[in-house]
Amino acid sequence: MATFKDFRNKNKPNWCPGCGDFSVQAAIQRAAANIGLEPEELVVVSGIGCSGRISGYINAYGFHGVHGRALPLAQGVKMANKDLTVIASGGDGDGFAIGMGHTIHAIRRNMNITYIVMDNQIYGLTKGQTSPRSDAGFVTKSTPEGAIESSVNVMELALASGATFLAQSFSSDVKELTTLIEQGIEHDGFSFINVFSPCVTYNKVNTYEWFKQKLVKLSSFEHYDSTNRADAMRVLLEHNSLVTGLIYQNKAKKSYQEYIQGYDSNPLSQAKLTLSKDEFNKLIEEFK
């Protein structure tokens, strides 16, 4: 059985020392080993940005795509081979700016994949511009007078869009994050995990220290029912979404592929490509 080390490769990440993404990478590798995956059973699809490089740092099948499109790529992979475990990943710009349309639709489509966003509230790779997750007033190269737009509240949005698995975590809390990724992979449906992953170079506001002070763990609540959607929305509103843990899970709804009429029980990648003479002739007759 594969261990954590089997999901490592020799590629040295090009992230800055102290970047939160290192811990996210480690958590994915640990979670994959913990649930008993082999490297060839995992596909990591990523977007563009610092975090998008993650697909190259994990010993698994990896697809580093184009900006904002990790989710449709990942859903395509899952459609081709439902036996694979598919993780889509990227940054907040990737998922909530250029790729926001796909995020909403992937949530409501509810395909059985896991989406992990490394949310640093800034554009790092392009050297420090505002992100849709930056708070109003945030000063960056592109917002020298402070951001005018308000931050997009992705947790509320995801819940409103019909998310069946919604979690949030903090890169410093690898233990919690690993558990959430395991739960996400095992969830039969679309699992969305937003991870605060601080940018130590360009974001001097939302720092490790800032998050430590602001974030509240749902596990510290005496009674929190993650199966209750109304409670989930309430806790997000009350804490301005600065909570970590499993926010909401709907186990009753099946994943997209289970609803497809006629869908092959074997992976489509193994489908028979030829038609029999009778099958072809029947198709032809319909046009007469």
């Binding site: 699809v45 989710l71 449709p72 395509g76 459609m79 081709a80 009429q261 038609l275």
Partner: peptide, 28 residues
């Protein structure tokens, strides 16, 4: 569906093309 396959109507053409790329990469 008669041949085990399916169609997804995507949210836009960018999703259509990238989903098709993902699926071809996956082997179908």
């Amino acid at each position: 569906p008669e041949f085990g396959g399916t169609v997804i109507q995507t949210e836009d053409e960018i999703a259509a093309a990238t989903m098709a790329i993902g699926a071809n990469y996956g082997g179908v």
